[in-house]
Design a binder for these strands. Structure first.
Length: 291
DNA sequence: CAAGACTCCTGACGGC
DNA sequence: TGCCGTCAGGAGTCTT
C-alpha cells in the first residue's frame, strides 16, 4: 500500500508533532514487529531518546534520535502511523492491530498499527543495518532523463518489474508504476534495454510528475487501509489514469483499460496508448525468421 | 543476471 | 447464512 507519496505524506504530517519530543516508554503489541535489536533492547534503549528529525528514504520512514541512532520502519502493505492523544485513540486504528506504541513526553503517543504484520520497526545506528541496496530518489535531480536512459539500457529486464525493483529506483510501487508507464505510453512488458532515449527521458519525467501530484493530493486511498496520520484518506485515487480502472475507458484515448499480470502483480494498461511489444526479445533472438 | 514461485499475515469479497 | 477459495498497495529468499 504505502508507496513513496504516502510515506512522504505521513512523514510530513508527523514531523511537527514528533520533532523535539522525547519517547518516554515503548509498548509492544506484537514483538515480532521489531526487526532489530531484540524487542527488549528496542524498548529499553528507545526510552528517554529525543526525536530530532523525521524524514523518508524510499518507502522507509526515519526518525533520527538525539544519540545518533534512528528509529526506522517500513509499513509494507497495511502499516499505519498516527500520533494520538492518550485519551482519544484514532478510531480506525483498531487496538488489536496496534503493534507498537511510543509514549511521548507531551502526553500523546505515536502508534504503529498493521493488520497483516508485514511492517517492521528497527533501532539502528546506521540505515545500512536494515535498508537493502536502494536506488536514487526519483524526485532528486540526479534521477533525470539522462540517468534513466543509461540505467534502462544497462539492464535487460521487463520494464515494470525493473521499476518496482527498489535497488533500481527508490519508492515506486504497483500503483505509481502503472500510472507513470501510461503517461509515457510505455507497455509494462517492454524490455528495458530496447527503450529509446526519448522514451526514457519521458519516463523519468512521468515518474516525477505522478509522484509530485500524488504527494500534493496526500497519496491514494481506495480501501480502509491507507489514511494520513490525521486519519484522512488521500485524494490521488480520483486522478488514476489506469490503476484499478480495468473495463473503464482510457482518459487519454477512450479505449478500454485492461488488466494483466506482470511479475505476479496486477497491472493496468491502455492497449492503445501503451502498445504491447512485438515479441519477447529473447524469443526473437532464439528463433530468427519464422514462417 | 533475470524471472518466477513461494512466503510472511489478515481481511474482504465473490461464488456456490 | 455460511463456508471456501482468491486476491491485495511489499519485498525477501530460493529455484530454475
Amino acid at each position: 500500500m504505502p508507496e513513496l507519496p504516502e510515506v512522504e505524506t505521513i512523514v510530513r504530517q508527523l514531523r511537527p508533532q514528533l520533532v523535539g519530543r522525547t519517547i518516554t516508554a515503548v509498548r509492544l503489541g506484537w514483538s515480532g514487529v521489531v526487526q532489530r535489536p531484540s524487542p527488549a533492547r528496542f524498548r529499553a534503549e528507545l526510552a528517554g531518546r529525543r526525536i530530532v528529525a523525521a524524514r523518508r528514504r524510499a518507502k522507509y520512514f526515519v526518525f533520527d534520535l538525539d544519540d545518533g541512532r534512528a528509529l526506522v520502519g517500513h509499513l509494507r502493505m497495511t502499516g499505519r502511523l498516527a500520533v494520538e492523544p492518550a485519551a482519544a485513540p484514532v478510531a480506525a486504528l483498531r487496538p488489536e492491530w496496534v503493534r507498537a506504541r511510543f509514549d511521548l513526553d507531551d502526553g500523546r503517543c505515536l502508534v504503529f498499527a498493521d493488520v497483516r504484520k508485514f511492517g517492521r520497526l528497527a533501532l539502528v545506528r546506521s540505515l545500512d543495518e536494515v535498508l537493502p541496496e536502494i536506488g536514487p530518489e526519483p524526485l532528486s535531480a540526479a534521477m533525470d532523463g539522462r540517468w534513466m536512459a543509461a540505467a534502462l539500457s544497462a539492464r535487460r529486464r521487463l520494464l515494470k518489474p525493473l521499476l518496482l525493483d527498489q535497488s533500481f529506483v527508490a519508492g515506486l510501487g504497483n500503483i505509481y508504476v502503472d500510472e507513470a508507464l501510461h503517461l509515457s505510453g510505455l507497455h509494462p512488458l517492454r524490455a528495458s534495454h530496447r527503450i529509446s532515449r526519448a522514451r526514457a527521458e519521458s519516463l523519468a519525467q512521468s515518474i516525477k510528475s505522478v509522484l509530485q501530484r500524488a504527494i500534493a493530493a496526500e497519496g491514494s486511498s481506495f480501501d480502509a487501509f491507507y489514511r494520513t496520520p490525521e486519519g484522512q484518506p488521500g485524494r490521488y485515487q480520483d486522478g488514476f489514469l489506469v490503476y484499478g480502472r480495468d473495463g473503464q475507458p482510457c482518459r487519454t484515448c477512450g479505449a478500454t483499460i485492461v488488466r494483466l499480470v506482470v511479475g505476479q502483480r496486477g497491472t493496468h494498461v491502455c492497449p492503445r496508448c501503451q502498445p504491447r511489444p512485438r515479441a519477447a526479445p529473447r524469443e526473437r533472438a532464439a528463433r530468427p525468421a519464422r514462417r
